[in-house]
Design a protein around this nucleic acid. Sequence first.
DNA 1: TCAATAACTTGACACCGTGTCAAGTTGACA
DNA 2: TGTCAACTTGACACGGTGTCAAGTTATTGA
Lengths: 202, 202
Amino acid sequence: MSSKNNPTRDRILKSCQTLLETKGASDVRMSDIAKRAGISRQALYLHFPNRAELLIATTRYLDEIHGIGKVVDDQIFTAEGVARLEGFIDVWCNYIPKIYGVGKALMAIKDVDEEARVAWDDRMSAVRDLCDRTIQSLIEHDMLLPDLNAKEATDLLWTLVSVRNWEHLTQECGWSQVQYLKHMHRSALKLFTVESWDIERV
Amino acid sequence: MSSKNNPTRDRILKSCQTLLETKGASDVRMSDIAKRAGISRQALYLHFPNRAELLIATTRYLDEIHGIGKVVDDQIFTAEGVARLEGFIDVWCNYIPKIYGVGKALMAIKDVDEEARVAWDDRMSAVRDLCDRTIQSLIEHDMLLPDLNAKEATDLLWTLVSVRNWEHLTQECGWSQVQYLKHMHRSALKLFTVESWDIERV
DNA sequence: TCAATAACTTGACACCGTGTCAAGTTGACA
DNA sequence: TGTCAACTTGACACGGTGTCAAGTTATTGA
């Protein structure tokens, strides 16, 4: 399953993942992870040089498990225009809850750990790329509202579907995942796309 | 200026504020603040029991300086309907950059410090109240889009103008404050309000 | 069968930032 | 002159990260 075939390493990553999902990101200590993986705290450092690298490896591990890259490619290369926008929102917004635990931990230390910052920003810029391609597809099909340029539209879409907004709506506001998803679709359509009556009008 | 007339206390709060604005929130230590205020680190603890309380006091200090309460009341009680929505966005979104420094620090420790969490959530729920009253005013004037209920609209508006979204757009995306403000207005109108042609249509 | 090696263990320790404690200084005021 | 508040210096405990040294255990291959 994991790229390096190393059972202990995998057990560590799995432990890290589940702890981050269950406990709040901030009170998952190296010793907690070690205990859950059934090894000594020091043995962690035989596999990962520090906490940041362990968290980063955990996100990659999650990507592998869920095969996100494949799903994204399928979505991106099949649909066009509004359908691609809808597809992108479905795929990404349903992926957020799966990475939220480790994402929160990485976001928390990214202010203090340069390496973690780079790792997280790198992943988020991959999401921005998806936003960019989605907006491009809207433009190509004359479905982007004319008062938006590509850069602004991309930034706005990126912000709309940010992990922070998912966190805010589902954790603070108590929204369900389907409710969240419904409104991401609605908001994206309202903010970015030319509505049907507009087309008929022209 | 400050409620308690205590020059040293004020100097501490001012030092804390400027340090949080200039340096990144996370590497402002108690010793840094003390040094800048020209007192010993231990003297801080004569005025504030811990870091969290100091940060909380700093936000209150900022509120006093900027007289935010007064401005908000003026806005809220004069305008109605869409004008109130516009006014709310102007006032709040222009206030965010002033509190961002200390806000970021509070958000960072709110995962780990219960008291800080309560303080920050309390402030943010005050913002939610403003959102709520704004949406109510839209409803009263039949300007809220019919596919939204009050609770969802309030949550969405609250999310739209969250500090995190300001951070994302201005810090990550490099937007200017006026650009940010322009799009908050645009987005709010698109997401919440019945457009003029709709009214004519009915 | 023995030796080397990898993977792990135990235990100690340095570092950093927070918060606490005790004892001493300074200046104002009564 | 004495008292009190505000402050100082210096020491220390705590918790979490990361490091280091020395010892154990199981596998493997000459």
